[in-house]
Nucleic acid binder design. Structure first.
Lengths: 250, 250
DNA sequence: ACCTGAACACCGTTCAAGT
DNA sequence: ACCTGAACACCGTTCAAGT
């Protein structure tokens, strides 16, 4: 076997997180990609990624927005660099079996995305491909293989798991959450769905009407864990070859 | 049993799709929510949802953007109305067992999102709650229950499946796809990930390096089907109660 | 009562002109 | 060669003023 615990564990031991805490910037710092990403990160932490616009970042660095384009291709690329920077802080735990460790890592990834409103949304669009993203992908893939999944299922499964966790995070980081000005008001958006679900017409949506309690029920944590665990179980149980039989379905 | 095929099948037989083809608008139509949604839909179809801004829609309707706010709360709400409108066109097939029918419905939903660049992205953020969204949710839920899933797993599973399909669509509807000006160039973004994956360092990302072919392999269709089928299998095999045992994991 | 012109406060990105 | 002021082409949303 080519994988080993020793190779997997060093994941996340990069120094990528150092710039995060480096706040001793001179008044007029020398412009560089690193400083730009750093400034973007600070704005994202304080006010959400949506506020970390080219103009705003430039202002933070005492320059004009045009200057940023010397080091950064566009806003999407900049936000991608921020995500990858943050991903460097993720670390694998040594505790638990492969399943617990996978869940913990995915949870940490989720929590990271939620901590920076707007980040999940851009992660979804960006198709991240930075070095730390690759490390995260590698860690999950290694865990699934360690858990006994065949490498093809493990590969596609890792893709699906990371995408799903990102989507959950994107769904939860509402625009309201990204805007600290708006009162937190966590019941608002929930009520809208709750209202639609509970008040659904049994004639047109009989199953929703009959199971509204289950649809709306469960703490976020229990639901999250169940979903991830069920997905992994499904990936472990479903062979890819099987598909070639009724593959003509579309 | 309270669910029945007859109740499930009428799903999608609304007239919501009629306005889509109604292009015989007078030069200066009377402003109404319906006309606004209709105009937004047309712009979205032709140029992508991103171009369907308040200003652009207002221009299409020969008025100022302020006038739209009489009928629509904000851009997000308008885009949500467009999604729900389009969802009205989805229909259940009678062919196949519950699994095939679920897959076909989810596929149709996916294809719909992909057909309107930007729609998936906004569906992800919006937490849709319109009547046709509820109908779609109800249809999937009904199919999973018909397939034998307990109602609690079916409920959470439906949520996860719809979220995942939306996320896949959002991932595939790149900003490039939303912008018809940009040359289609489908190899571009793929190459970026392909490059990162293939060129990954075996020292830092051993599993990615070892399995790059599997990670990048598979036609989109096979991958999509495997993922959805595996998820459903996992939901069917994983009891929610089980979670309360090691629920203290976080 | 209903509608809207005009304004406010922003955006990303480019490019000609400066140092 | 490197940097950037100023401009171009947009945004969402509000509100005072009109009909």
């Amino acid at each position: 076997m080519f994988f080993s615990i020793e190779i997997v564990y060093p994941y996340g031991v990069t120094d990528s997180t150092t710039p995060v805490s480096r706040r001793d910037r001179p008044a007029k710092p020398p412009l560089s990609r690193e400083w730009i990403v750093d400034a973007t990160l600070e704005i994202a932490r304080r006010e959400g990624l949506a506020k970390a616009t080219m103009r705003r970042v430039a202002q933070e660095l005492d320059t004009g927005p045009a200057s940023l384009y010397v080091y950064v291709a566009n806003t999407a690329e900049l936000h991608g660099a921020v995500l990858d920077q943050l991903l460097g802080a993720l670390k694998l735990t040594r505790r638990g079996d492969y399943l617990e460790r996978t869940e913990t890592l995915l949870r940490d990834y989720h929590d990271l995305l939620v901590a920076y409103p707007g980040l999940a949304r851009s992660a979804l669009v960006m198709r991240p491909a930075g070095p730390n993203w690759l490390r995260l992908f590698d860690a999950v893939l290694g865990l699934l293989i360690e858990g006994g999944l065949e490498s093809d299922r493990a590969s596609w499964g890792t893709d699906a798991l990371l995408l799903h966790v990102t989507a959950i995070a994107a769904e939860h980081s509402t625009p309201a959450a990204a805007d600290p000005d708006a009162a937190v008001d966590p019941g608002r958006k929930i009520t809208e769905i709750e209202q639609a679900t509970r008040g659904s017409d049994p004639a047109t949506t009989p199953h929703v009407a009959a199971h509204s309690a289950e649809i709306l029920g469960g703490t976020g944590g229990a639901r999250w864990t169940w979903t991830i665990r069920a997905m992994i179980a499904g990936f472990a149980a479903t062979a890819i070859e099987t598909l070639d039989r009724p593959a003509s379905v579309r």
